[in-house]
Computed example of a mutant assay.
Amino acid sequence: METTEPILDAIRQRGADAYPEEGCGFLVGTVTDDGDNRVTALHRAPNRRSENRERRYELTADDYRTADAAAQEQGLDVVGVYHSHPDHPARPSETDLEEATFPGFTYVIVSVCDGAPEALTAWALAPDRSEFHREDIVRPDPEAL
């Protein structure tokens, strides 16, 4: 995943704002010639989960359509999802794997401990949806994005 520090900071802030619940939203940008996701914007979305919001998040099809329409207006695409893990590591849970639906998307997770954002990681879902693979987070020159 390619992105800038301000985008990463915005994801961290979203996690802190949602604490002690999980915060979530969409990654917006383009796919590079190498097949990597270049994230140039975020689309914030509400956590639609009605229970266990401190351990689970939910985005609806309508949330996706809204994010996609907003992205299209900018000539961009939805290229992933981000969410926070309150008081847990920034790695996918079994529930994250069970609920992940889009190979090719980047899945960003930020760990938020006692309200403060800590580690932030990026993951790619395997084509057969059996596991996540860690993605590098590349911060190119902001003028290149």
Results as ranks from 00 to 15, higher is better:
E118I: 00
V31G: 04
P142D: 04
T4L: 02
T32D: 08
G35D: 05
S93L: 07
V39A: 07
M1A: 11
I7Q: 10
H83A: 05
T121A: 13
W123G: 00
T4D: 14
E118G: 00
R134D: 06
H43S: 14
E2G: 01
L125S: 09
R38W: 06
Y64A: 06
D141V: 02
H88W: 05
I109T: 08
W123A: 00
G15F: 08
G23R: 07
L125D: 10
A100V: 06
S50F: 08
P103V: 11
D63Q: 10
H43E: 11
G115H: 09
S93I: 03
R49Q: 14
C24W: 05
A144W: 02
A90K: 06
R129F: 02
A10K: 12
V138S: 04
R12G: 11
L125K: 07
D128Q: 08
E135F: 00
S93G: 12
T32I: 07
A45R: 07
I137Q: 05
I137A: 07
Y19G: 09
Y82W: 03
L145S: 02
P117I: 03
E118Y: 00
G104F: 05
A126F: 01
A70R: 11
A61T: 13
I7S: 06
T4K: 07
R129T: 13
S130W: 08
T106M: 02
A90F: 04
E99V: 03
P86N: 06
M1W: 09
T101S: 12
